[in-house]
Amino acid sequence: MSRLAIQKTYKLYIGGKFPRSESGRFYAINDSKGNLIANMCLASRKDFRNAVVIARNAQSSWANSSALNKGQILYRIAEMLEGRKEQFIAELIAQGETAENAKTEVLLAIDRLVYFAGWSDKYQQFFSCINPVSSAHFNFSVLEPVGVVAVIAPEKQSLLGLISVIAPAIVGGNTVIVLASESKPLSAISFAEVLNSSDVPGGVVNILTGKKEELVNQFASHMDVNSIIYCGADEPLMLSISELASNNVKRTTFYKKNDWASDSCESPYFIEKTQEVKTTWHPTEI
């Protein structure tokens, strides 16, 4: 007699826990033949609101952890992902990727984590400077995380794209709330399981699944979100994000690119996108 397989329940990832949507709603993800792959939580704006509170609370201690520590945690995520790569490949295939593409994407995603892990204790040296002011002051400028970042992850390359956008944000000390690919959300929630077993403090990465049309405006208008990153090319949506972002002078970043596999997706300038420059002055006379 064949054994009945245990199906996985995909939930949200907020504050290091896996809650269902407070709304109780869900949406179905089907394969190309119309068979159900999974029921995903349809996150509500209240779920998002809760996630922002949690991300805010987690931000300063995450930012204050040492650069070395953040690097090791990112590397640890890569290690855990490497160990479960077959699962991720299978999930991508289930969501319609070819076997070859799925494998390439997962391997690249792991390498990208390692890439940004390596930047953790270096980007500051790259972007900071001492400013030779004319007066008797020691004056320097360093980067600081912008704070809480809301991310609308790429629709395609649902694992690699997601990782490529959040890795530079968190390695720079931000906490993020991500809206996963709407059509391919499985990898994001499985990735949450990886995060949860990788020493990433709860609340640093929060992952929601749901509908862009419901949530993007909430992401853009929330007054306690400092920056929003939108991956995609929907012009009306970008207009709406930009307009709503002005409510609290939110920093907006739009990644219109389709291909997150290229080498151009690896540079410290991605980290810089969610950083602020802070300049400090102190007298030098005694």
């Binding site: 008797a136 002051h137 007298p283 030098t284 006379e285 005694i286």
Partner: peptide
């Protein structure tokens, strides 16, 4: 006393 401040 902070010399820079005094100088100012």
């Amino acid at each position: 006393y902070d010399t820079a401040g005094v100088n100012e």
